[in-house]
Design a protein around this nucleic acid. Structure first.
Lengths: 258, 258
DNA sequence: CGCTCATTTGAGGGGGGTCAAGTAGAGTGG
DNA sequence: CCACTCTACTTGACCCCCCTCAAATGAGCG
């Protein structure tokens, strides 16, 4: 197996990300669709790159919300802590995706954001955003679009949690992750998961052990290869079948006929 | 029991809602925090009241998104249809709450919105919103706040679905509903549910029967009174206990000592 | 009054949670 | 480079909650 394929971020991104106009995430990101002049303006006034090391917090619960963040490399998670102290993973955030929308309502963060691996984000000052949005036509609309994508992911997540069997949730999770990695130019079939089994469990509403068993089972069925946090999707069609109607376990990949 | 307390909408709202400046939802709604002049401008250019009868659709899946809606009376649900044809209730929308954010990403609705009872909504034209937002200072920020609230509800919803027992989900659901009704001036203790058991089940990720059993059980425990869609919260503290750590079933309201 | 649909109630089985123990990796210091 | 440790992950056994199927009861309405 080729180890080089498991990547943390698209190759070459490190150099490009210093400027919005060069950034490979541009079409996903806030600046999308803006002309060169607006882009330059935006970059001067808004953007502020920032590094977050693995395990480091981008913000905490209760912190005043001063900015929105766009992940540019690596991966983050947002976690909400329930009254009982249980952590629930609200979302995972890959390059190009917005972080920090929680707290948009009250100006105070309801979640905490943690880097799963060494990551980089673009910080967008909120107070300036409103000012700039009035000057730069299209930015407001683009902001709504990016927020909309975030909302869409939340709804997909909710859909994951409702009345789905464990293996359906897992399959949908892997499928979604694969699609999102493909969006940023990474391999859709060979993933290096930035999150632990525990994170996945808290995201999917399952027990840690169930996640582990589920992955093992999918490997036995020939759908994926698992080795720690390295996952290789062997049979995307079978994965899709698992995701959409969990009953497709038998006779999938010739486990019985072999 | 006083039937008059079960209300579809705050008393007097019907007359007030014809104007944003008079609407009792103002502080929840988009126009909040705007001065009189901006408000008038907003009202002339944006707002368009609309009635939706019980069971009628506000929009369908796949429809182009042309507007955002703010519920002003009644109640609606948004439903997403999974690949298998199963309906999942994404959210319930009470007066003052935003409807139609799905599809903000792609411009096409991913859910359908249905009125649970005869309702009224304010239609906010999207194409005009962007223009007006540039003229009216504060509108952009307020829009983000309202969207933020919607996001917050989504996250609460997701929190409901993750690793919670059936009675915890039910308790949290009732509690949340009670709080939201109180926000619009309705009774927090005597609710007339606008949605069916099936809707609740599809919202909470449970079987219809489990919802029914759960409500019955909470009634036996003296926490609530249920009669069809009329729910009276007898013991809010006990409800909160049930919601926060499901283990508080025994010895709650003296069922054993009585 | 009789229809239909919503809701309740019952019985039974399975999926996944919990508890518990074992194994493999990753990082650290000798 | 290797041994050690700690954490992450896997695997097993058992049991309970909730889903499923099925039937009865109740509510709303023409």
């Amino acid at each position: 197996m080729n180890e080089a394929v498991f990547l943390e971020a698209p190759a070459g991104l490190a150099r490009l990300r210093r400027s919005c106009s060069l950034c490979s995430l541009q079409q996903l990101c806030l600046p999308s669709g803006l002309d060169a002049e607006s882009l330059a303006h935006l970059e001067r006034t808004l953007r502020r790159p920032r590094r977050v090391r693995r395990g480091e917090h981008l913000y905490f619960v209760g912190t005043a919300q001063e900015a929105l963040f766009v992940a540019s490399s690596g991966a983050l998670k947002t976690v909400s802590i329930s009254e009982g102290g249980e952590a629930h993973v609200v979302g995972f955030h890959l390059p190009g995706e917005l972080v920090g929308l929680d707290g948009l309502a009250g100006g105070v963060h309801r979640c905490e954001a943690v880097a799963l691996v060494d990551s980089e984000v673009c910080e967008v000052q909120l107070d300036r955003l409103n000012a700039v949005a009035r000057e730069v036509p299209g930015l407001q609309a683009q902001l709504l679009r990016v927020i909309g994508r975030s909302l869409e992911r939340d709804h997909l997540h909710a859909g994951l949690l409702v009345r789905r069997q464990a293996h359906e949730r897992l399959a949908l999770f892997l499928q979604g992750l694969s699609e999102r990695y493909a969006l940023v130019g990474a391999s859709a079939s060979e993933l290096r998961l930035p999150m632990s089994r525990d994170d996945i469990a808290r995201y999917l509403g399952l027990a840690l052990e169930t996640v582990s068993r589920g992955l093992t089972r999918m490997q036995e069925d020939g759908v994926i290869d698992v080795r720690g946090r390295r996952v290789c999707i062997r049979d995307p069609a079978a994965l899709a079948l698992l995701a959409h109607d969990g009953e497709a376990c038998e006779g999938l990949s010739g486990r019985q006929s072999a």
